[in-house]
Simulated assay, not measured.
Amino acid sequence: MNETNFPLCNIIIALVSSHRNLTTQRIRKLGLYPGQDMILMQLLQRDRQSQNELVQSLCVDHSTIAKSVNRLMKNDLVVTVKSEIDKRVTLVSLTSKGKDIAQQAQDVWNDVEKIATGDMSSEEVTSFLKLSEEMVRNFNNAMDKK
C-alpha cells in the first residue's frame, strides 16, 4: 500500500501489527498461544465462568473458546466442571498454576501499555484515546449504514 496515498490506514496497520507482534512474543515466553492470555486474564478478574460467558466477554466464537480451554486444561492452567444448576453448562476455573500465569500475562499487558505510551504525557495519551475512540465510532457507524 502506498504510504502517501493512505497515511492513516498505513499507520493504523503498523500500530496494530507492532502491538500484536510484541505482545505475542512476550505471551509466547509464558508458554501461551495468543488469545489464551485473554481467557486467563478474564478468569483472573472473575473465576468460574461458563464457556458461553467467555465467548461473550471476549467476542470470539464458541469453538475457539472450547479449543483454547482444552489446551489450557492440558497445561494444568484451568479446570472445568459441569454446573450443578444446569448440567449443559461448563464452568471454567483457574488452577493455582493458571492464576500465576494469568498474573504474568497481565504483567505483560501492563508492560506493553507502558512501552506503547513511552514518554507521552498523560494529555497526549488522553488525546490519542479520544481520537481513536472517535475513529472506532466512525468505522462502526459506516458498517451499520451498509
Rank of each mutant, 00 (worst) to 15 (best):
S96E: 12
K74H: 09
R88S: 09
S17N: 01
R88T: 13
P7A: 06
L44C: 07
V125S: 05
M143D: 00
K114F: 01
E134G: 07
A102M: 08
K146P: 15
T4Y: 13
N75T: 09
Q106I: 01
S68F: 05
R26V: 00
A102G: 09
Q25D: 08
H19M: 14
L91G: 07
R28Y: 05
E123C: 00
L40H: 06
F6I: 01
Q56M: 05
A116I: 03
L72R: 07
L44D: 08
H62Q: 12
V16H: 03
S18T: 11
K67V: 06
D107M: 02
L131E: 13
L94T: 03
V108L: 02
R28L: 08
T64C: 00
F139L: 12
R28V: 14
L129F: 10
E53W: 11
V60F: 08
V69Y: 01
T117Y: 12
D100T: 06
G98H: 11
D86L: 06
G118K: 12
K114R: 04
Q45N: 14
K82A: 15
Q104K: 13
V89S: 03
R71S: 10
R46P: 02
E3A: 10
D47E: 09
N10G: 10
V79E: 12
Q25W: 04
Q36L: 02
T64Q: 14
D47W: 07
V89W: 01
Q42W: 01
D100Y: 03
M135H: 11
L54V: 06
H62A: 15
V69Q: 01
S17I: 05
V78L: 10
L30Y: 04
Q42E: 10
T80S: 00
F128V: 04
T23P: 03
G98T: 13
S83H: 09
E3G: 04
G35H: 12
K67N: 14
L43Q: 09
N2V: 14
K87Y: 09
V78Y: 13
Y33K: 05
K99P: 08
L8S: 00
E84H: 05
R88K: 11
K87M: 05
M1W: 14
S57T: 01
T23K: 00
G118C: 03
R20V: 14
S83V: 14
D86E: 07
L54M: 13
Q36P: 03
R46Y: 02
R26M: 00
K97I: 07
I39D: 13
I12E: 00
D76N: 15
L72D: 12
V92Y: 02
V108W: 02
Q51I: 00
W109V: 10
K74C: 13
D47F: 13
